[in-house]
């Protein structure tokens, strides 16, 4: 489209736990908080369900950034799921970095159901940050822009 500027539009995949972060994203909606439309959200019941493999699959599919978000430590609906998440993604960030994939492309955050503004802020900041980091282009044959 002619009127579209050619700013890089990062693709961000979001994996959100249902109880806190997905609800927080809902709250952002209910409160009409505006954030960039670059994120695609996948809901899981607990951030403990989210595997590094899902992150890698997202990068394989052309994601430039992945947001993993769960309940604040201590608030996990399933008591401890997010503690495992925290460990898994601490490792994953190191390994991504080791393979030359900027750590900033994988963000782990805690957003509660009431933190709509926080969710909107996180997505906004992350979109900006990934825009700075630039496209990942891991795919040999990228999907159409």
């Amino acid at each position: 489209m002619a009127d579209m500027d050619d700013t890089f539009q990062p693709r961000i995949m979001g994996f959100l736990c249902s109880w806190c972060s997905y609800s927080g994203a809902d709250t952002a909606g209910v409160s009409r908080m505006q954030y960039p439309p670059n994120i695609r959200i996948i809901r899981v019941m607990c951030s403990g369900r989210i595997e590094p493999l899902h992150v890698m699959k997202a990068f394989e599919q052309g994601a430039d950034g992945v947001l993993v978000s769960g309940c604040h430590p201590g608030d996990c609906h399933y008591a401890t799921g997010n503690y495992y998440t925290q460990r898994r993604f601490a490792v994953m960030r190191q390994l991504l970095d080791f393979f030359g994939i900027d750590q900033r492309r994988l963000k782990l955050t805690w957003v509660s159901a009431s933190e709509g503004a926080r969710f909107a802020d996180i997505v906004t900041a992350m979109t900006e940050e990934i825009r700075m980091v630039g496209p990942l282009n891991l795919r040999a044959n990228p999907k159409g822009v």
Partner: peptide, 14 residues
């Protein structure tokens, strides 16, 4: 495919 190879080795490391 490059992404598949990266993914395999990175995930195996994990």
């Amino acid at each position: 495919d490059r992404e598949s190879v990266f993914s395999f080795h990175l995930m195996r490391a994990y």
